[in-house]
Design a protein around this nucleic acid. Structure first.
Length: 385
DNA sequence: AACTCCATCAACCGCGTGCAA
DNA sequence: CTTGCACGCGGTTGATGGAGT
């Protein structure tokens, strides 16, 4: 039993709007203001669904909307915001005056995503695809064709299936440091690893790997948190003094030692005996509510990508970051920049890759009783990839 | 000229959420 | 507490026009 239709589909007009219809909407809004859209068609004399009226107004007729091309500055902002918070188009659009979420989404899907792909950057993770391939090569065992690996959506596949277009860089990116990768001069995209023209399976494999990588970014160390970091669940576990990158993963059965590991109890030990193969043959996508938050001894432990952390912060309210544990070899310390965050770790090296670029994992121990708030957008003033 | 392919973007769809009754 | 409504959001579809053959 599905949801009942919002209106009588057989009695409403669909498709493109005429100037006459636009005029009716504008006249109605001018008299009554926006809102109560279900009654707008009747009151405005339109044979349209109320939902359609709202969309037409918010995406096209609303005052102060820009209808010209995106500027390089806007594109740069979209790319960086997407890297930070993902496809939260409405949030991204809020940072771009005069742009709607639909505008931003379309521009991303038609232009920016392809541009990044052409540069050898994965538009999902914003990491160099060569790095992903390198990671993949380090996985012991290639899955057979057709092996089910997680949930792979069309967009994820298309991001990789897009044809390779030569680009020197993102047009309009005025500050190269804002580009969330190490280098823009990539080796020929797939050539050294896959034969695009003759081996569709390789592409499928590549896309599947991307899915795995994405899954792992989002869920792996969360899913293994209690298993590998029992100290976090002890009464001492809430201390902000721990900066150990405890979730360094193990590849090819070789433990990875994190030189920054400062856990007093277990110094310089392999922090988490993880095996990639655990993710290869099962659906590792976890429901978000199982990934993001666990209550630990009166503290709220949040471990997620930065946008999920932001969401949690917003949901919880004003909080203080008691500590943010470093997740990789490099750490950016925001302490002296006025941010209530001791450090933001990079997780890339958790996968044993050689690159120092990483995803935007934020791990935080939050004290709900504190009053200090975290201004997430300010973190975006400088990249922390 | 006719046809196909493809990029673009407006519009649609279904789901989630908030809120009032 | 439940229900229904309104709205916002993100994913997807489809109409359109331009480029290529």
């Amino acid at each position: 039993m599905g949801r009942p239709p919002c209106c009588d589909k057989s009695n409403v007009k669909r498709g493109l709007w005429t100037a006459e219809e636009d005029a009716k909407i504008l006249a109605y809004v001018s008299d009554h203001g926006p809102g109560n859209w279900t009654s707008v068609p009747k009151k405005a004399g339109l044979r349209r669904c109320g939902k359609s009226c709202r969309l037409r107004y918010t995406n096209y007729l609303r005052p102060n909307l820009k209808h010209d091309n995106f500027t390089p500055q806007e594109e740069e902002l979209i790319i960086n915001l997407h890297a930070a918070i993902g496809s939260r188009w409405s949030l991204i659009a809020q940072q771009l005056p005069g742009r709607t979420d639909n505008d931003v989404k379309n521009h991303w899907n038609t232009k920016l995503k392809k541009r990044l792909c052409g540069m050898g950057i994965d538009p999902v993770t914003h990491k160099p695809i060569s790095q992903i391939l390198h990671d993949y090569e380090n996985i012991g065992g290639i899955p057979k064709p057709g092996t089910r690996i997680g949930t792979l959506n069309r967009d994820l596949k298309n991001a990789f299936m897009v044809k390779h277009e030569p680009h020197d860089g993102i047009s309009g990116i005025t500050n190269p440091s804002m580009i969330p990768i190490q280098s823009l001069s990539m080796e020929p995209l797939f050539s050294s690893h896959f034969n695009i023209n003759s081996n569709n399976h390789s592409l499928e494999l590549l896309a599947q790997f991307q899915a795995i990588k994405l899954v792992t970014d989002q869920a792996s160390h969360c899913a293994n948190l209690e298993r590998f970091q029992p100290h976090l669940f002890s009464s001492e576990g809430s201390s902000s003094s721990s900066s150990c990158s405890s979730n360094v993963l193990q590849l090819n059965s070789q433990p990875v030692i994190n030189p920054n590991c400062q856990t007093s109890s277990v110094p310089n030990t392999p922090c988490s005996p993880f095996s990639w193969s655990e993710f290869l043959l099962e659906d590792a996508f976890l429901p978000p509510n199982q990934q993001e938050q666990q209550d630990v001894q009166g503290l709220s432990y949040i471990e997620s990508s930065s946008q999920l952390a932001q969401t949690e912060f917003n949901n919880i309210g004003n909080v203080t970051l008691e500590g943010v544990r470093d997740m990789g070899y490099s750490t950016y310390d925001y302490t002296n920049r006025g941010y209530p965050i001791t450090s933001i770790g990079e997780t890339n090296d958790a996968f044993g890759a050689s690159s120092s670029s990483g995803s935007s994992f934020v791990e935080a121990l939050l004290d709900r009783d504190s009053e200090m708030s975290w201004d997430f957008p300010s973190l975006l003033e400088e990249p922390y990839y």
